[in-house]
Design a protein around this nucleic acid. Structure first.
Length: 583
DNA sequence: GCCGTTTTCGGCCCGACTGTTTTCAGTCG
C-alpha cells in the first residue's frame, strides 16, 4: 500500500508546515487526520480515485482532500504540498521533531535566529544567539541541547515485547511502596500497540509524595523530566520515557480511560459527552454548566468517575476493550452484543515452532513438555526448509527422518499431540521449497516468505497468492516478513490476500514474535472483515518464547479477532479435521 | 479542512507542568 503511505506522509508534512506557518489549527488537524486515516487503511486508496464519492465517504476525508488524493494518484504529486514545502526550509521539520520544541518555538527560532535545521540550531545555541530571544532562558536552552542529543541517540519507538516487561517491573515496584492502592500501566502499552513511545503509569495512594519519590529515584532513572504534584516524568537509562500520574482513588476509572487513549478515541468520547450536555476529563464525567473553570475545581460531583464501565455506560456505550480504542469504528459496536475479542486463555495450540533440527534451541521432547505447561492440546514442529541454509533448513531426507522422530516423540510425551510439519519457504517465484509428495506426508504446512522481501507489490502479491491457493498449504506464515524497526518487508495487496485466504480456506498467520507481529493489527482487521481464518503462533525457537503468545493476542484484539476465527482456539478434534481436509 | 439526533454555517477536547514571567505561553499527552 505504497500509495497510502506516500500520501499519509504528504498530508502529515502539510499539517506540520501549516502548523509552523501559523495556519488555522482546525485546518492543521484536518490534514493530520487525513494522514492517520490513510495510514490505517488496508484498501489501496489509488483504487478509489475513479469514484470521488467513495473517497469522501471515508470519515475525515472531505472534498478538498479527495481532490488532492486524486491529483497525487494521477500526477504523482500534490501542488499545494509542493508550494508549502517552498514556504519553509526543509530542515525545519526535523527541528519540529525535537521534544519540547513545538510549532511556535520553531517559528520563532527560524524567523529570529535563522535556524533552518538541527545543524544551524546547534550553531545558534553555541554562539549564544538564542539568549536574546523572548522566553529563552538558560534552562530552556539547556533542555533543547539535551533533547537534540537524545534524538540523535535514540529516536525510535520501543517494541511492545521490550516495553511490556519494563512496565510490569515498575508496576510491581510501585505496588510495594507504602500507601499505594492501585497501580496500572495505561497508554499505548495498555492498548497493545506494536511499538511504544513512552510508558504511562497510573496510581492511587494515600501517600502521593512518597510514591512519586520512589518512582523518581528508581535504579535505572537517568533524568527526571518533570516532578509535579500529580505528574512525574523520568527517562530510563535505556532511553525510554516513563510518566507516572497520581490520581484520587474515587476517579481512577476516569483517569484510566483518559490516559489509555488513544488521543483520537478520547476526542470522540469528549464530543459524545458534549452532545449529552456533559463534560469529560480525567477527573470524571460532569454535568456541563457552561462555566469555563474545570468542574472538579468547583466542588461539582461527577456523574461517573470510579470505573471505566460507568463512564462508557453514561455515554450510551458498552465497555470498549483498550486494544480497539483507536476511533476505527469502535463507537459503532452494539451496546448489547459487543464483539467477544480473543483472549490468551482461548489459545489451545501452538502451530509454529523450531527445534534443534534447524535453528531452534529445544528438542522435540522439550518442545512437547513446554507446550503442555501452557495448557495446549497440540503443538507443531515446523522447522525450516532446505533453502533456508542459514537456518540449517532440512533436506528432504532430514525432514523424512524428522517426521519419524516426531511420531516417536508422540509415543513418549503423553498428554499432548505433536504434529509433524514444516515452515516451507515460498521461493521468490511463488513455488514452494519441497515437492507436493513430501508436503503431503506432513500433518501441517506453513508457507512463509524469507527471501526476496523487497519485491514490488504486484509481484509479491502474486507470489503469496500462489502459496495461499496451494492445496497442501494450511497457513501463510508471517505474510510480509517485516521486522519492526529493522526491516520494511513486503507490501502485498492485503485485501487480495485475505479474500483468497477466505476462499481457499487457508489461515493467515499472526506471528507473535515481538520483532514481527505480522500480520499487523490493521491486516488482522482486514482478515476479520473478509471472513478469513487467522493462526496466532509464537514461532518459538526456545521454550521461554512461548510467552510471546500474549503479544500476538494483543495484536489480534487490535484487529477485532474473535476466538472462533482463530484456529489455535479450536478443539483438537476440530483442528485435526481442518488440517486433514488439505491432505 | 471537516462535519451534521438542534447545524450546509459555525463550530471544532482538556488539563498538568515548565520556564518564563509577574499572570501566562507553549508543549505534551
Amino acid at each position: 500500500m505504497a500509495t497510502n503511505d506516500e500520501l499519509a506522509k504528504i498530508f502529515g508534512e502539510m499539517a506540520e508546515i501549516l502548523e509552523i506557518t501559523g495556519a488555522n489549527r482546525f485546518r492543521v488537524n484536518a490534514h493530520a487526520r487525513v494522514a492517520r486515516v490513510l495510514k490505517d487503511m488496508t484498501i489501496d486508496v489509488a483504487s478509489l480515485v475513479d469514484d470521488p464519492k467513495a473517497l469522501t465517504e471515508i470519515d475525515g476525508i472531505g472534498d478538498a482532500s479527495a481532490k488532492k488524493i486524486i491529483e497525487y494518484v494521477r500526477t504523482g504529486k500534490v501542488k499545494e504540498h509542493q508550494q508549502l514545502l517552498k514556504e519553509i526550509p526543509a530542515g525545519l521539520l526535523d527541528v519540529l521533531k525535537i521534544p519540547g520544541l513545538g510549532p511556535k518555538t520553531v517559528k520563532l527560532l527560524w524567523e529570529q535566529a535563522d535556524v533552518t535545521s538541527i545543524t544551524t540550531l546547534k550553531k545558534a545555541i553555541d554562539s549564544g544567539d538564542l539568549e536574546d530571544l523572548p522566553r529563552m532562558g538558560a534552562k530552556t536552552i539547556q533542555n533543547i541541547k539535551d533533547s537534540i542529543a537524545f534524538v540523535a541517540k535514540s529516536s525510535r519507538r520501543v517494541r511492545l515485547g521490550q516495553a511490556l516487561p519494563v512496565a510490569e517491573a515498575i508496576v510491581e515496584l510501585l505496588r510495594d511502596v507504602s500507601g499505594t492502592k492501585q497501580v496500572q500501566y495505561a497508554g499505548s502499552l495498555r492498548r497493545g500497540l506494536e511499538t511504544i513511545g513512552d510508558i504511562d503509569i497510573l496510581a492511587t495512594t494515600t501517600k502521593p509524595a512518597e510514591l512519586a519519590e520512589a518512582f523518581r529515584t528508581m535504579e535505572d532513572v537517568s533524568k527526571v523530566l518533570a516532578a509535579g504534584e500529580t505528574k512525574s516524568s523520568i527517562r530510563l537509562k535505556t532511553g525510554m520515557q516513563v510518566d507516572l500520574r497520581i490520581v484520587d482513588d474515587a476517579v481512577f476509572g476516569a483517569a484510566l480511560a483518559y490516559f489509555t487513549g488513544s488521543k483520537q478515541h478520547n476526542v470522540v468520547m469528549r464530543e459524545r459527552a458534549i452532545k449529552k450536555k456533559l463534560r469529560l476529563n480525567e477527573y470524571g464525567l460532569f454535568p456541563d454548566d457552561g462555566i469555563d473553570e474545570p468542574p472538579q475545581k468547583r466542588g461539582i460531583r461527577p456523574v461517573a468517575a470510579k470505573t471505566e464501565e460507568s463512564i462508557f455506560k453514561r455515554l450510551g456505550l458498552p465497555w470498549i476493550p483498550p486494544e480497539i480504542r483507536e476511533d476505527r469504528g469502535e463507537f459503532n459496536i452494539s451496546k448489547d452484543s459487543p464483539p467477544a475479542l480473543i483472549e490468551l486463555a482461548d489459545i489451545k495450540a501452538e502451530l509454529h515452532t523450531h527445534t534443534t533440527d534447524s535453528d531452534g534451541h529445544m528438542t522435540i521432547d522439550q518442545l512437547g513438555e513446554a507446550a503442555k505447561t501452557w495448557g495446549f492440546h497440540t503443538v507443531a514442529v515446523t522447522d525450516h526448509s532446505k533453502s533456508s541454509a542459514q537456518a540449517n533448513g532440512l533436506s528432504e531426507d532430514r525432514l523424512r527422518a524428522q517426521i519419524d522422530a516426531v511420531h516417536e516423540a508422540n509415543e513418549r510425551v503423553k498428554g499432548i499431540t505433536i504434529l509433524a510439519g514444516s515452515e516451507v519457504d515460498i521461493l521468490s517465484d511463488g513455488r514452494l521449497d519441497y515437492d507436493d509428495d513430501l508436503l503431503a506426508e506432513l500433518d501441517i504446512v506453513i508457507a512463509s516468505p524469507h527471501v526476496a522481501l523487497r519485491q514490488p507489490t504486484e509481484k509479491c502479491t502474486a507470489r503469496l497468492l500462489q502459496a495461499i491457493r496451494h492445496p497442501l498449504v494450511h497457513i501463510l506464515g508471517h505474510p510480509t516478513g517485516r521486522m519492526i524497526n529493522a526491516r520494511e518487508g513486503l507490501h502485498p495487496d492485503i485485501n487480495a490476500l485475505v479474500e483468497a485466504a477466505a476462499e481457499y480456506n487457508t489461515a493467515l498467520e499472526l506471528n507473535a514474535n515481538f520483532y514481527r507481529l505480522d500480520l499487523r493489527d490493521i491486516h488482522v482487521k482486514a482478515a476479520v472483515d473478509a471472513g478469513a481464518l487467522v493462526s496466532i503462533n509464537t514461532d518459538a525457537h526456545a521454550t521461554d518464547q512461548f510467552d510471546q503468545m500474549r503479544l500476538g493476542v494483543l495484536t489480534a484484539r487490535r484487529g477485532w479477532l474473535t476466538a472462533n476465527s482463530c484456529i489455535n482456539t479450536w478443539t483438537r478434534q476440530k483442528l485435526l479435521k481442518w488440517l486433514n481436509a488439505k491432505k
